[in-house]
């Protein structure tokens, strides 16, 4: 397998109406598989959220990470994603989330650390155009002088790699800290004890509406790597809806690491 370049691929954009948290989890599963099987061209998917959610990483303990009672009180659904990494607190309009479904050839020979930075180089460029000096902080964060902006996670399936990222556009820090249990040990090498202060969202840094930030990001990806407007195939959506119901909504999956 030869290493490929972004421009060797016919990148497709998927940006649809808001979808449920479990459907988002399932779409990542299905689309990674489709790209790996060669049935779908490499794809950038921008997520729109239909409901608030806490998305925990594949290996996080449900009870250690989430205050279930607080989540219920705030009407927040808890879901588990297919990739490792940390918990994300999502409210519609408050985050910018995207997935890149790529052939593994794109990062062939790169270390994990290099592959994470590689997949988000276009985002650093877009943020720079918006006046934000941002950089990659290993292992998997995009950060700025003001604080953390985003967290990334990758998972490899067959011939494909999924790289997905959640960026903080705005944040209700009090609600987040009510729902997520963020331990001291986790913050021990972050240089601050305040979890809320760790995140500096894009809204305060750009002064732009969320949609404008997304537009800029899409334009930058298109300019650097090429990007055609695409859509979900009907059979992909059917498959994802089935998985959302059977797997990603099931207590067995959500509580897989209790």
């Amino acid at each position: 397998m030869m290493r490929t370049d972004w421009r060797d691929h016919d990148w497709q954009l998927i940006h649809t109406a808001p979808q449920s948290p479990t459907l988002h989890m399932a779409l990542d599963d299905v689309l990674t598989h489709e790209v790996g099987a060669g049935r779908r061209a490499p794809t950038l998917r921008i997520w729109e959220w239909a409901a608030p959610a806490v998305v925990i990483g594949r290996f996080q303990s449900l009870r250690n990470e989430v205050d279930g009672e607080a989540a219920r009180r705030h009407g927040i659904e808890v879901v588990r994603r297919v990739s490792g990494g940390g918990a994300m607190f999502i409210e519609p309009g408050n985050t910018i989330t995207y997935s890149i479904y790529a052939p593994q050839s794109l990062v062939k020979g790169l270390s994990f650390q290099e592959a994470y930075a590689f997949f988000d180089a276009w985002v650093l460029e877009a943020l720079g155009e918006l006046g934000i000096k941002a950089w990659y902080q290993p292992l998997n964060d995009i950060t700025s002088e003001g604080g953390k902006i985003a967290g990334a996670a990758q998972v490899h399936r067959g011939g494909a790699v999924l790289h997905h990222v959640t960026m903080a556009y705005d944040i209700d820090a009090a609600k987040m800290l009510d729902v997520l249990r963020i331990g001291r040990e986790k913050l021990s090498d972050k240089g601050t004890v305040s979890a809320a202060k760790r995140v500096d969202p894009l809204r305060s840094q750009t002064g732009l509406p969320r949609e404008a930030v997304i537009e800029r990001m899409i334009a930058t990806f298109r300019r650097l790597h090429g990007l055609n407007d695409g859509s979900l195939r009907a059979d992909e959506l059917v498959q994802a809806e089935a998985l959302a119901l059977t797997k990603f909504s099931s207590p067995t999956w959500i509580g897989d690491v209790a």
Binding site: F59, Q60, G85, G86, P138, L139, N140, D189
Partner: peptide, 30 residues
Amino acid sequence: KMPGGKLVVIDLTVRDGRLAGVQLSGDFFL
């Protein structure tokens, strides 16, 4: 918190001097 790494969490009990019900969790990648 592994230096340069992620949070590694272990929950377990001890039965008859041996580890039991061991559960690894955290925000690592595996």
